[in-house]
């Protein structure tokens, strides 16, 4: 069985949000709703600035906190590690919404809880998720984390900095951020340190 995961190279991401639009189109996400969001962080004082774009979506956590709280079994984890929701079993009770430490779930106008599926329908056809194939800078990598020759494993292995969001939650997210200078840094709130590292090309 595969263990699907994704990595985003923050240094390559230009914040164009083509992935967000591709996701909406591919998955027919309703008007006003999004499965992805973009976070833009900027440190420093003009003209000495450093910024990063960070695309966030369901992290398909290994210890997904949204799964055990579901009272109807609508939210479940596949053998491939994907965390999915079965709309026909979902009551829209929102237990999973409050249980997600990343706040990546929302209620679809149809009443059921919606989120990124890693485009499981495309995976079943042997294709990559829509956000991955759309990214114009090639900042997204997807594949089997257990397969060392998969795109995502190669990207993670060759990165100098690999982070996950909120590691202290114990959720073990399977979406990794590469080459970020702002995520989980002890000096996160100290722009001078980040800027000096940036200037030094670290």
């Amino acid at each position: 069985m595969a263990r699907y995961g994704m990595a985003i190279d923050v240094a390559r991401c230009q914040g164009c949000q083509a992935c967000l639009v591709a996701c909406k189109t591919e998955n027919e996400v309703p008007l006003g709703k999004f499965r992805l969001r973009m976070r833009e962080e900027v440190v420093g004082t003009f003209p000495d600035l450093y910024g990063e774009f960070r695309m966030e979506q369901c992290f398909h956590c290994e210890n997904a906190p949204c799964v055990p709280v579901c009272p109807t079994g609508a939210t479940f984890q596949t053998d491939d590690g994907l965390v999915l929701t079965n709309p026909s079993r979902c009551t829209g009770c929102k237990a999973c919404v409050v249980a997600c430490p990343y706040d990546m779930r929302h209620v679809n106008p149809g009443g059921w809880v919606d989120k990124c599926t890693f485009c499981d329908h495309r995976i079943a056809e042997g294709r990559q998720p829509a956000c991955v194939v759309t990214c114009p800078t090639g900042s997204r990598f997807f594949g089997d984390l257990d397969n060392p020759s998969s795109d995502v494993s190669i990207a993670i292995a060759s990165a100098t900095q690999v982070d996950v969001l909120k590691p202290h939650t114990g959720a073990k997210p399977k979406l990794f951020y590469l080459e970020s200078k702002l995520i989980n840094q002890a000096d996160h709130d100290d722009p001078a340190t980040v800027l000096s590292e940036f200037a030094g090309g670290k």
């Binding site: 709703k33 999004f34 969001r37 973009m38 900027v42 209620v107």
Partner: peptide
Amino acid sequence: IGITGVDPT
């Protein structure tokens, strides 16, 4: 910090 998308996500 700027965030795009005014919805429950």
